[in-house]
């Protein structure tokens, strides 16, 4: 353990920019590093990522390790895991954090097994145990019904962090830090999974994760038609439409709209839950909303235990009237 020092976060770069989760990892990593009295480092892997190092320093990193190579343009697991493994072995951190993102949730377990350590995925809280100085890793389990706190004495202690669970620091452009280049030295013989193409399915309009208002429909919508009405309501708020797993599994809406444990995590100011029961799996994706409003005809539905305001009734009767009144209020 003596050889391991500090906190390392693995940044997510999306379309040439540091993703929001990277700032959140730096914010959380800074706190942990300060508690330990040790350094916070970041590793950025990709193509053309060197220019982002200063931004990571402004957001809290003491050192930024850059693995920059044109071959790292797209996420390719075999190559990425080798690149991050190399950086981790150079840094030898006590704690290694990644985002619970499309890349992180695929890369982190590969890396954990390769480093012969263990990992807690989808953590919502991280802290240092005052006695053992080990990382306390809190994550939802049992579909969000319970939470569990784990520790380990295997180094590095690894965790992926749920998006929006941690706060980023206010960027400070005057912060000083060191940028260290790590040559990728990619051995193409490690590539076993061949990337063919990427198909984007993002719906037009406001991104679900960034929308201030999300209007979601569940199994009780009964078909794709009702989602048109949710779309109209969402548009009034300049918001986005979400859905539950049953709505996706029935093929009513694309899977990119799914909110929940296995879908998107959203934290809007207002979450309007229409004809959805509020299963733990679904609530795991939206319980961070400031206000939850429920429209459901079953007064016993779990969603009424989660919502701040609600009406009991059929959405078919409620929605048109609600929409008209909202339109009037927002116009006035």
């Amino acid at each position: 353990m003596a050889d391991y020092k500090g906190v390392l976060i693995c940044g997510d770069v999306v379309e040439g920019k540091l993703a929001a989760i990277t700032g959140e990892l730096l914010g959380c990593g800074r706190k942990l590093a300060d508690t330990l009295g040790e350094e916070l480092s970041a590793v950025l892997v990709g193509s053309g990522v060197k220019g982002l190092a200063q931004e990571a320093i402004a957001q809290g990193a003491d050192k930024v390790y850059v693995v920059d190579d044109p071959l790292l343009q797209n996420y390719q697991p075999d190559v990425y895991v080798a690149a991050v493994e190399k950086a981790v072995k150079q840094v030898m951190p006590k704690i290694l954090l990644m985002g619970q993102t499309s890349v992180g949730r695929d890369l982190a377990p590969r890396l954990a097994f390769r480093l012969d350590t263990v990992l807690s995925m989808d953590c919502v809280d991280l802290d240092i145990d005052p006695d053992s100085k080990l990382l306390l890793q809190t994550r939802p389990v049992y579909g969000g019904n319970a939470r569990a706190i784990f520790t380990t004495d295997r180094m590095p202690q690894m965790a992926t962090v749920r998006s929006k669970a941690m706060s980023a620091l206010e960027p400070d452009a005057s912060r000083q830090g060191e940028v260290i280049e790590v040559p990728a030295e990619i051995d193409e013989s490690v590539v076993r999974v061949r990337f063919v193409e990427k198909v984007k399915e993002e719906v037009a309009g406001v991104k679900l994760e960034d929308a201030p208002v999300v209007v979601s429909g569940g199994r009780g919508m009964g078909g794709p038609e009702g989602f048109q009405q949710l779309e109209e309501l969402a548009r009034l708020f300049k918001g986005a439409v979400g859905s539950t797993r049953p709505a996706v599994d029935n093929g009513w809406v694309p899977s990119t709209t799914q909110v929940g444990l296995t879908g998107k995590i959203v934290t809007p100011d207002l979450y309007i839950a229409v004809a959805l029961s509020g299963s733990s799996q679904h609530m795991a994706g939206c319980s961070g909303a400031k206000t939850i409003v429920a429209i459901n005809k079953d007064p016993e539905a779990n969603i009424f235990r989660e919502a701040g305001f609600g009406i009991v009734g059929d959405w078919k009767q409620a929605l048109p009237a609600f929409k008209e009144k909202v339109k009037e209020l927002l116009a006035g």
Binding site: A294, F304, F309, V312
Partner: peptide
């Protein structure tokens, strides 16, 4: 949860 009432569902929605 604060349940909003009305004469009917549409009224409750308003």
């Amino acid at each position: 949860c604060e349940i909003i009432e009305g004469e009917n569902v549409a009224d409750a929605a308003v």
